[in-house]
Simulated scan of single mutants.
Amino acid sequence: MILKPSLVSLALSACVLSAPGVQADTSETHPHAAVEQSTFGTLPDGRTATLYRIVNDQGMAMTVTDYGGIITSLDVPDRRGTLEDVVLGFDSLSNYLSTAYQRANPYFGAVIGRYGNRIAGGQFEIDGHTYTLAKNDGPNHLHGGDTGFSRVLWHATPFDNAEGSGVVLTYTSPDGDGGYPGQLATTVTYTLTDANQLVIDYRATTTKTTPVNLTQHSYFNLNGEGSGSVLDHQLMINADAFTPVDATLIPTGDITPVQGTPFDFTEPMAIGARIDQNTTQLERGKGYDHNFVLKRAADGNAMRLAARVIAPDSGRVMEVSTTEPGIQFYSGNFLDGTLTGKSGRPYGHRSGFALETQHYPDSPNQSAFPSTLLSPGDTYRSRTVYSFSTQ
Results as ranks from 00 to 15, higher is better:
I2Y: 01
I2L: 02
K4R: 09
S6H: 13
L10N: 14
L10M: 09
L10D: 11
A11N: 10
L12S: 12
G21C: 07
V22W: 07
V22P: 07
Q23K: 11
Q23I: 14
Q23L: 10
H30N: 15
P31C: 08
T48F: 02
I54R: 11
A61Y: 09
A61P: 13
D66P: 10
I70K: 07
I71G: 00
S73K: 11
V76H: 02
R79H: 03
R80I: 13
T82L: 09
T82D: 08
L83E: 01
E84R: 13
V86I: 13
V86S: 00
V86L: 04
G89A: 06
D91N: 15
S92D: 15
L93E: 02
L97N: 09
G109A: 14
A110D: 05
A110M: 05
V111D: 04
G113N: 01
R114K: 07
G116S: 13
N117V: 08
R118E: 02
I119T: 10
A120K: 12
I126S: 04
Y131T: 14
G138R: 02
P139K: 09
D146C: 09
A156T: 14
F159I: 14
D160P: 01
A162C: 02
S165N: 07
S165V: 12
V168W: 03
P174R: 11
G178K: 10
G179Q: 11
G182L: 07
Q183G: 09
T186R: 01
L198C: 03
I200K: 13
D201L: 10
T206S: 01
K208R: 13
S218D: 01
F220K: 12
N221P: 08
N223E: 06
N223H: 08
G226T: 07
S227M: 11
V230P: 12
V230G: 06
D232C: 02
D232Y: 04
L235I: 13
I237M: 00
A239T: 11
P244I: 14
T248M: 01
L249S: 09
P251G: 11
D254K: 15
Q259P: 04
G260M: 12
G260R: 06
P262K: 09
G272V: 05
A273E: 13
A273F: 00
R274I: 12
N278R: 15
L282F: 05
R284V: 09
G287F: 01
D289K: 07
F292C: 08
V293H: 07
V293R: 07
K295I: 03
K295E: 02
R296M: 08
D299V: 13
G300E: 01
N301C: 09
A302C: 02
A307V: 13
V309F: 00
A311F: 02
S314W: 04
S314Q: 10
E319C: 05
E319V: 06
S321I: 15
T322L: 04
Q328M: 10
Q328K: 08
Q328N: 11
G332I: 12
D336I: 15
G341E: 07
S343C: 05
Y347Q: 08
R350C: 01
L355S: 10
Q358H: 02
H359Y: 14
Y360H: 04
P370E: 05
L373W: 01
S382N: 12
T384G: 05
S387P: 10
S387C: 06
